[in-house]
Amino acid sequence: MRQHYDISAVRKAFPAAEHVVYLDSGFQTPLSRPVKEAFERFLSEGFETAGPKQVWLNRLEETRAKVADFLGVKPHEIAFTKNTSESMNIAANALPLRAGDKVLMIQGDHPNNAYAFLNLRKKGVEIVFIPMTEVIDAESFRPHIDERTRAISMSHVTFHAGHRFDVESVGELCAQHSLYFVVDVMQGIGVVPIDAKTMKATFIGSGTHKGLLVPQGLGLLYWDATRTELEPAYLAAASLADPPLDFIARPDNMALPATAGRFELGNFNLPAVQALGAAIDLINQIGIEKIQQHCFELGDYLIERLDRLDVGLVGPRDRQHRAPHIYVIALPAADWLDYFTQNGIRVSPERDGIRVSLGMFNTIEDIDRLIEAIRARNAPTTQARTAVLSKLG
């Protein structure tokens, strides 16, 4: 396997990876040293100086610019939220949908994307789910579009089997039919390069505790700033174009800014935002394309080793349709999860098996440890099968 970057140096930035075979970054990535140091700096400044608020806010804007560059957009198109769920709810409620309008989604996609739109049924909006197949692209949605269709919302990468859908073709389809397009990139961001403009997305939502390396409690929202008709469902002083300096609300001062700040409520998660800046610096230092390629090659190796054991893989195998870092092994979670935990291997239970999710710090040795654990447990069964075949022979 080709070495795309100094994996040993990167691994040292994630101490947890030295103590456990960590194959669970699709749940939450271990804390890295740069992220930890950013939190510690924030705590130290708050402890020693009672908080240099303007310095912290300046750093927030620096991080906003880093996020924007990471997605190929402008800083004024980025808002900070609490998590993916809040981002998707902000997006769903900002769309000017009325009774009788129709939104297309994918059956079995992430529930917190689905519920954000299902909640609009109380307004008379119809939510139609198309079947989930191994390949989802524009042609998957095209037959379901009619004169009432107003939007499509979907994930870029699925959490439960590692599908990587062709969001670019779906975005083009939405542009052709003047549909709003909402994309949940939580499972791919930080590992899969994302270009919001190529996606032609109206909104993109994500949290930061997976590929973006920051603990839970911070989210992102990209908003296409040309869509000025999209307004927040709620309002605060921080959401206004001209917040009142005397903190007195006035009915004649409710104009929204021409920025994604219209979707923010203020009182940001400042330590997490600063940590996100450090995390993006780390990702950029390594290179997102290199991280993606590294994970693809580890995934190829994992698939090859599973095939040798005659153990199945849930979801797509072709690189064109799979995420580089999410693989679900067809082993019953109820039977295998505790076994892996007892053997120092961190994975997640998933709908149809055990999810292995890779990070920039994982190595072939991590995959070998996983495979050897599977082989060791399956050995008695294999030996018994061999004995039976021997007797029959």
Rank of each mutant, 00 (worst) to 15 (best):
I7N: 09
I7Q: 08
A16D: 15
A17K: 00
A17L: 03
E18F: 07
H19S: 11
V21P: 08
L23E: 06
S25T: 10
Q28R: 15
P34I: 13
P34Q: 11
F47N: 09
F47E: 13
K53V: 12
V55K: 12
T63I: 02
R64W: 10
K66G: 02
A68N: 09
D69H: 12
P75C: 05
E77S: 14
F80S: 11
T81Y: 02
T84I: 02
S85R: 15
S87E: 03
S87P: 06
I90P: 08
A91L: 02
A94E: 10
L95R: 06
P96R: 02
L97R: 03
A99K: 07
D101W: 01
H110S: 09
N113C: 07
F117C: 05
K122Y: 09
V125R: 04
P131T: 07
A138S: 06
F141V: 07
R142W: 07
E147T: 00
T149A: 02
S153A: 15
S153E: 03
M154H: 09
T158F: 13
H160D: 10
A161R: 11
D166S: 01
D166Y: 01
V170I: 15
Q176P: 00
Q176K: 14
L179H: 08
V183W: 10
D184M: 08
V185H: 01
G188E: 09
V192R: 09
P193N: 10
K197W: 01
M199Y: 10
A201C: 06
I204E: 07
L212N: 10
V214T: 14
Q216S: 14
G219Y: 09
G219D: 13
W223L: 15
W223K: 12
D224S: 02
D224T: 03
A225N: 12
E229N: 12
L230P: 12
L230Y: 04
P232R: 11
A237H: 14
S239K: 04
A241D: 14
P243H: 04
L245F: 11
D246W: 06
D246H: 08
F247G: 07
A249F: 13
R250Y: 13
D252H: 08
N253Q: 11
P257W: 10
A258S: 12
T259M: 08
T259L: 09
E264M: 15
N267P: 01
G277M: 07
I280L: 15
I283T: 13
N284A: 00
I286L: 08
I288D: 03
I291H: 05
Q292S: 14
Q293E: 12
H294Q: 00
L302F: 00
I303K: 04
E304R: 10
L306T: 08
R308Q: 15
R308K: 14
V314P: 03
G315I: 06
H321C: 10
H321F: 14
R322P: 01
A323E: 03
P324A: 01
I329F: 02
F340H: 01
T341F: 02
V347M: 05
R351K: 07
G353H: 04
R355C: 05
V356G: 05
L358D: 02
G359F: 01
N362W: 06
I364F: 03
I374H: 02
R375H: 12
R375L: 08
T381Y: 06
T381S: 13
Q383D: 08
T386R: 08
A387F: 11
V388K: 12
V388G: 05
L389Y: 09
